[in-house]
Write a protein that binds this DNA or RNA. Structure first.
Length: 588
RNA sequence: GUGCCCUUAGCUCAGUUGGAUAGAGCAACAGACUUCUAAUCUGUAGGUCGGUGGUUCGAAUCCACCAGGGCACGCCA
């Protein structure tokens, strides 16, 4: 993409290097970077090329830098290049070259920043994957937002991305869900059955007591009447009702989860069912394959050090040789009743993703699953022969704060904050943006009061305000007869843009493709939020720096400034689109 | 006991995968509204990047050890 001025300049630098050092190996050239210097006084761009190349070329960095400078000064985009410090080459760009980037933005629209760094590599991003046993709560929300934004930014950077949700509908949790739904069903039929009464009849006890399952009981009654119950609305033999109740309950929970995801603006491409995978024999096949490769054996694990469970006793288990692939201990694949552990099915699921042709797997998990990462990495190595990398992005706990106090959450007491409650309170856009204002692996307090505050402290507002200001100027321009559509503005002469605050804004806008690429390659979508904050800051600074955008006696200058404003609004929208946030036209 | 994550200004956090004199916001102080929204902006002050070593042209970033905080640790998902 020629839109990426960093890539363009990097190509210039490498061509210049090869002009006088023709034998540089590719892996050295790979390390050549063109970046923005921290200190703007150093110029628009800087390259480490001389430092990187000096050693393999057996030359002193200043010597390489001098040769490089001479050639870069001849490049059409370069105003001046000079060697500095230990061997950096600082580059000042032709102002016209920078200004022309605005034209590229106006022509590309929100597609500006689209890149090719992903090279069409097939990536599967799996996120949310909440158990279908109840409504989504805020704990799931961060992963949903991070996963969705990561998938978006990777797609923008040129990866072929599939967004996926793994439905854990095969384990003990959904069995417990089925019992809880059956309890609601019996109540619906008129059984006088308290939670404690029913608890005694459930293997493992009654787990899900929240009244969100009442509608499931109603639906079961509407569909089946009393045919799933025993005499006098008692518990019938499980063979008569269990599969049906579980299926209905899971379907309804998934419907509720999909509704919540839709409200958050998350749309996943694939919903993969653990049960479907198991019933199709995928788990058996994968385990048989591992068995044939000698990666599964019957053995006894050491007890955990330090904190040995009370009822610990040595037991022979079916184990996967995770230690061969970097894990600390081998991991069990079957429970004592012979059924698969969650891990066994998860191996099959990841093998399925590999079989579907993905080159890279990304899972977004809650931090409480951190201990599970090494074994999953080991499993993916085993099933893909080390060919497919798995990156697990861990999202730390989010505490919801109100009035400076954490909001108490308890599933048992029914006081946990559901995702839909949170969206009702602050809006989906604020939720999404705010969730991306921290690195995902840092703990995070979500302050209900702060995200709706209209001050600079609140990045959501600050960025939206910049966009609203842009739109306001463009409306005023249109009202005074200017053609403010991007196509018309793209034909504007931009030489009037000379003010330092204007040029600073242009440089920021032109760096957007680089930020897209960086966020995508590092799997860190929060960088987009910080870029937008900095961009908004540049625009607010320009706003207050003096002259008005619209000046009656300076039509050409006004058009040039409108082009800058439109380009700014475009890049803000482009960034917000990645984050899944709707730009606002005005703030009242 | 082991593994993973975290530790940066008084507070909340960035730091573009190893670059130059470590940056924002809040709080503090001093300023800017005849304006397309002052819901904003400009400036001052604030640091032993948890500690000690190592790797190299160069380390907040990589490695080793130590200290503090969080998460997890055989048939829960």
């Amino acid at each position: 993409m020629t839109d990426n001025i960093f890539a363009l300049l990097r190509a210039r630098v490498i061509a210049a290097l090869q002009d006088f050092l023709p034998d540089l190996p590719p892996e050295i050239l790979e390390r050549v970077e063109v970046t923005t210097p921290k200190d703007a006084a150093h110029g628009d761009m800087a390259t480490n090329a001389a430092l990187v190349v000096a050693k393999p070329a057996r030359l002193a960095p200043p010597k390489v830098a001098a040769d490089l400078v001479a050639r870069l000064n001849a490049a059409p985009e370069v105003l001046s290049a000079e060697a500095a410090g230990p061997g950096f080459v600082n580059i000042r760009l032709q102002p016209d070259f920078l200004r022309v980037q605005l034209i590229a933005i106006l022509k590309a629209g929100e597609a500006y920043g689209d890149g090719t760094a992903g090279k069409g590599v097939k990536v599967n991003v799996e996120y949310v994957s909440a158990n279908p046993t109840g409504p989504m709560h805020v704990g799931h929300c961060r992963g949903a937002v991070v996963g969705d934004a990561l998938a978006n930014v990777m797609a923008k950077a040129g990866f072929a991305v599939t967004k996926e949700y793994y439905i854990n509908d095969a384990g003990a949790q959904v069995a417990a869900l089925a019992w809880a739904a059956y309890w609601r069903y019996l109540q619906e039929l008129g059984a006088n059955l308290s939670a404690d009464d029913f608890d005694a009849q459930v293997p493992g006890g009654l787990q899900y007591r929240g009244d969100y399952l009442v509608p499931v009981g109603e639906a079961l009654k509407a569909k089946h009447g009393a045919t799933l119950a025993g005499a006098n609305n008692t518990v019938a033999d499980t063979s008569l009702w269990f599969d049906e109740v579980r299926a209905v309950a899971v379907d309804m929970m998934m419907a509720s989860i999909r509704t919540d995801l839709a409200a958050l603006g998350v749309k996943q491409d694939v919903f993969a069912s653990e049960r479907a995978l198991v019933e199709a024999g995928a788990a058996d096949r994968v385990l048989a394959d591992l068995q044939s490769r000698g990666l599964i054996y019957e053995g006894v694990l050491e007890p955990p050090k330090g904190k040995t469970p009370e009822d610990w006793e040595p037991r022979e288990q079916t184990l996967f040789r995770a230690t061969q692939f970097g894990d600390d201990v081998d991991r069990p694949l079957r429970k004592s009743d012979g059924s698969n552990t969650y891990f066994a099915n998860d191996i099959a699921y990841h093998a399925d993703k590999v079989a579907r042709g993905f080159d890279v797997l990304i899972d977004i998990w809650g931090a409480d699953h951190g201990g599970y990462v090494p074994r999953m990495n080991a499993a993916v190595k085993a099933v893909s022969d080390g060919r497919v990398p798995l990156d697990v992005v861990l999202c730390q706990i989010v505490r919801v704060m109100k009035g400076g106090e954490p909001v108490r959450m308890s599933k048992r007491a029914g006081t946990f904050v559901t995702l839909s409650d949170l969206i009702d309170e602050v809006g989906a856009d604020a939720v999404r943006f705010t969730m991306l204002t921290r690195k995902s692996d840092a703990q995070f307090d979500f302050d209900l009061d702060a995200v709706v505050a209209q001050t600079r402290e609140n990045p959501v507002f600050y960025v939206q305000y910049a966009h609203a200001r842009c739109r306001s100027v463009l409306r005023s321009g249109a009202a005074s007869g200017m053609a403010v559509d991007p196509a018309a503005l793209a034909g504007t002469a931009l030489g009037h843009l000379q003010h330092e605050a204007e040029m600073a804004l242009i440089r920021r806008l032109a760096s957007w493709p680089r930020w897209v690429e960086g966020a995508a390659l590092s799997h860190e979508p929060h960088r987009i939020a910080f870029f937008l904050y900095d961009l908004a800051s540049d625009f607010h600074a320009l706003w207050n720096s003096g002259g008005r955008f619209l000046q009656d006696d300076d039509r050409e200058g006004t058009l040039a400034r409108l082009a800058l404003v439109e380009a700014t609004a475009t890049v803000i929208r482009s960034g917000l689109a990645v984050m899944g946030v709707t730009p606002v036209e005005e703030l009242r």
